[in-house]
């Protein structure tokens, strides 16, 4: 796998879809490809948020620690972005991510990511737009629930 394939993967991520390909290449180049073995934590609930990840290969479980033990709440697959909320809000990890089989992910360092957002307003706008969309969806869901 080369940088090109990573750029392709990043383009599949809604948050990055509208970003200029040259920027995505910079994002990919400054990110690190990381391999996880089955059962290994990508990160654990409560850890400080130091990076976001884009899954390139394999599947990973989202696990929440409950008083009754760990609870699997979702599964993530290739091209999914994870941990991005934590690095934007500076909050600790709200869930654990555990590799389900071998996983390859692109690790986007928090500092580098924020650096790029600061440098390129277009990227910030793309991220804001995605966040706004999510908020809208959540509002819609809330409205549906309360109706």
């Amino acid at each position: 796998m080369t940088l090109e394939t990573e750029v392709q993967a990043l383009r599949q991520v809604p948050m990055f879809r509208e970003i200029d390909p040259a920027r995505l290449k910079l994002l990919a180049f400054t990110s690190e490809r990381v391999m996880f073995s089955a059962g290994q934590h990508v990160f654990a609930q409560g850890d400080p948020s130091d990076a976001a990840y884009v899954l390139l290969q394999g599947k990973a479980d989202v696990v929440i620690e409950t008083p009754n033990g760990p609870l699997r709440v979702a599964q993530l697959a290739a091209n999914d972005l994870l941990g991005e909320m934590g690095i934007l809000s500076d909050a600790p990890r709200s869930a654990s991510i555990v590799a389900d089989g071998d996983v390859t992910a692109l690790r986007i360092d928090k500092r580098v990511f924020l650096e790029l957002l600061g440098q390129f307003p277009q990227m910030s706008v793309a991220v804001m737009r995605e966040l706004a969309k999510r908020l809208e969806r959540t509002n819609a869901k809330l409205a549906a629930l309360s109706a």
Binding site: L3, A22, R23, K25, L26, F29, T30, V112, E115, L116, Q119, F120
Partner: peptide
């Protein structure tokens, strides 16, 4: 070619330069 393209729009002296 790749490096000048990737880092083209970063101002010189940007920390990302030195790091990557």
């Amino acid at each position: 070619r790749e490096m000048t393209e990737i880092f083209r729009d970063l101002p010189p002296g940007h920390p990302l330069f030195d790091q990557f």
